[in-house]
Design a protein around this nucleic acid. Sequence first.
DNA 1: ACAAACCATAACTGAATGGTTATGGTTTGC
DNA 2: GCAAACCATAACCATTCAGTTATGGTTTGT
Lengths: 108, 108
Amino acid sequence: MKLAQANSVFRALADPTRRAIFEELTRQGEQTVHALTRYAGVSQPAVSKHLTVLKRAKLVRHRREGRESHYRAQPDALAPMVDWLNLYGAFWRDRFDRLETLLERMEP
Amino acid sequence: MKLAQANSVFRALADPTRRAIFEELTRQGEQTVHALTRYAGVSQPAVSKHLTVLKRAKLVRHRREGRESHYRAQPDALAPMVDWLNLYGAFWRDRFDRLETLLERMEP
DNA sequence: ACAAACCATAACTGAATGGTTATGGTTTGC
DNA sequence: GCAAACCATAACCATTCAGTTATGGTTTGT
């Protein structure tokens, strides 16, 4: 049970800007660095560095296409965090109930 | 949907020592600072500061008893992280399968 | 061909952070 | 009563980190 993997994932998602980038990639799908920069509210180099951190944690993959590189989320890499939560945190049944109420709250 | 709550939880669990303390409290139940210090492998003030961070994230509660204070884990506080995972990460069904295989792997 | 667009890296800066030792305040044991 | 145990806070230090500007390398558009 790879603990080192978990560490990089926890660290990568500790930063709110990085979480926002990951969320955006999850919602909107593949994005260029340029598009992410407009979204993130920080400079382009900052976005590039965040993407590097996310890539080390395997949370994103990138695909080069000409002068632009497209990034996409890789939710599978969240597995270590989910495993950790299953072990030390909450049980899936509680979480399922919680998800239901959460979705209810989101409905207009 | 309190985002600030999620932020403190993510931040608190980003540090491996803090995760280890939380894991120990989850497994062994309530512990004194002294006991946690022997376990954590860092100095007693370091443990106290980690516990403060965990307490701000509501991940632990402490109970004063004479000269010693006992800390215990509060797994409910993981809810924002679980919510986030449900939204941006994985679906609970996948996670349930994963939990099954995880538990199988842990059986001797 | 050349200018502009896209991206990554380098170099730097200030702030946050995880650790230490030192200290002081209660509480317990003898 | 007093020394020792338990804990938190203070003061300090080294390192990490998130952000910036500057720069250079490809690639695209005209």
